[in-house]
Design a binder for these strands. Structure first.
Lengths: 231, 231
DNA sequence: CGGCTGAATTTTGAATACATTCGCCGTCAG
DNA sequence: CTGACGGCGAATGTATTCAAAATTCAGCCG
């Protein structure tokens, strides 16, 4: 997916990346992710070329890329705007993510090392502590690290790229979800069961569990979505 | 040179045919899919602008789109070329497809109608007949219709889009695979079990079966890949 | 005779220019 | 007073131009 963005970390100041359109795409992704460009906001090419100090050509190429990734939508003869996610689309995306994580768990059991599992356990414990300390940012951070560790252990870059792309599109929604103590304790229990299944290298069972685990998050997120989006 | 606007609204969503870069992207997809542009073949912008009768701007936008989709890869300062799929990447993609189909099966069990299941049964029977008649094209065609029917029954457009994108990237490999009678009879048995599980609306079990079913295909395809790609 | 250097040519990357289309807004008829 | 028509300005879609990097190829040196 994001092919050109991950290579080439150069020492130079700003002109290091090969493609201007790639740099621009990265910056726009960040603007969207950070919320500086809100959903439904129109993209004004003139404004952005001025802001980035480039011409319209690479900017427009970046727009096409982001549109293909699903972060922007194209309006005929009216340019582009930041894609807005409907509630049903969010639910669909969560189901797909659940499937991708299930796949990752299944594959991870083939080759994951004990050390990697230990790292997950460490994050899990840190996550529990963060929750108990009402440290929401830390909680989400460790939680994400756990799921990304499983994804990495799948040793499947195609899978990881699709996952990253989808995650990027819903990140804002995903990490604005607040859980009840009930939901939280269920999530913790599922995490612990995940660790057991990883140790047992039981891919099939882990896949089932992960799908259900993400679905649990899905309902939390969906519940919060209405409030968040009712602007 | 050429009129900028040729058609107002064609049947469909209403945005696709309007952009030159979109038309070009479609045509290039077809060229790649048909094999007219082979993997590793360099894209010469001058040649293609001449061929399509357009300027370089929309062509380059189309190239960026196809590169984001994974059909092309960009070479810094050397343009683009048709993406070639390594054997490991093909295997990775098949695992992801297995996961997507498993997800589709799981979701399909929630809302699939009896009529839809009957249609699948019809295709399945036709597929068996095609095989017995050594009609390979018919066999693949019906087989694909079955899997697409399950995908459609998932009622998840995000899932279907990702599936279509991945399928498009491997189609050439996928439908060049020949099965042994052994593999075939196993595939038939799995299809029949799939139908049972659909009738029972047992999503979890169907997911497991579908993942294994696609993995079975995966080994067939991977075995054929070496021969096909050893150019 | 072969490999290397470097200038000419080609090709790509980016910027600018041109051509439509859309949207705003004032005007005017009903 | 309301709503439709049309002109004007701004923004988008496409083409063309400019600049830099790569490829080619001829001539030179070893």
């Amino acid at each position: 997916m994001r092919r050109g963005t991950m290579n080439k970390i150069e020492a130079g100041i700003g002109i290091s990346r090969r493609y201007l359109h790639d740099q621009v795409a990265d910056r726009m992704r960040e603007l969207i992710r950070s919320g500086e460009m809100e959903p439904k906001a129109r993209i004004n090419e003139g404004e952005l070329t001025e802001r980035f100090g480039i011409s319209r050509t690479p900017l427009r190429e970046a727009i096409k890329i982001l549109a293909t990734e699903g972060l922007l939508e194209l309006l005929p003869n009216r340019g582009a705007r930041v894609a807005s996610i409907s509630e049903t689309e969010l639910e669909e995306m969560m189901e797909v993510i659940a499937g991708l994580e299930a796949t990752a768990g299944d594959l991870a059991c083939r080759t994951i090392s004990d050390a990697e599992i230990d790292a997950i356990v460490t994050d899990h414990e840190a996550m529990v502590l963060a929750w108990k300390a009402s440290n929401e940012a830390g909680y989400f951070s460790h939680n994400r690290r756990i799921h990304e560790a499983i994804m990495a252990a799948s040793r499947n870059t195609v899978l990881a790229n699709i996952y990253a792309s989808l995650s990027g599109r819903i990140q804002r929604s995903r990490y604005s979800a607040h859980q009840t103590p009930d939901q939280w304790s269920r999530a913790i229990a599922e995490h612990e069961r995940m660790i057991e299944l990883l140790r047992a290298r039981d891919g099939a069972a882990l896949a089932v569990l992960l799908r259900e685990h993400i679905r649990g998050k899905k309902s939390v997120i969906a519940a919060n979505y209405g409030a968040a989006e009712a602007v």
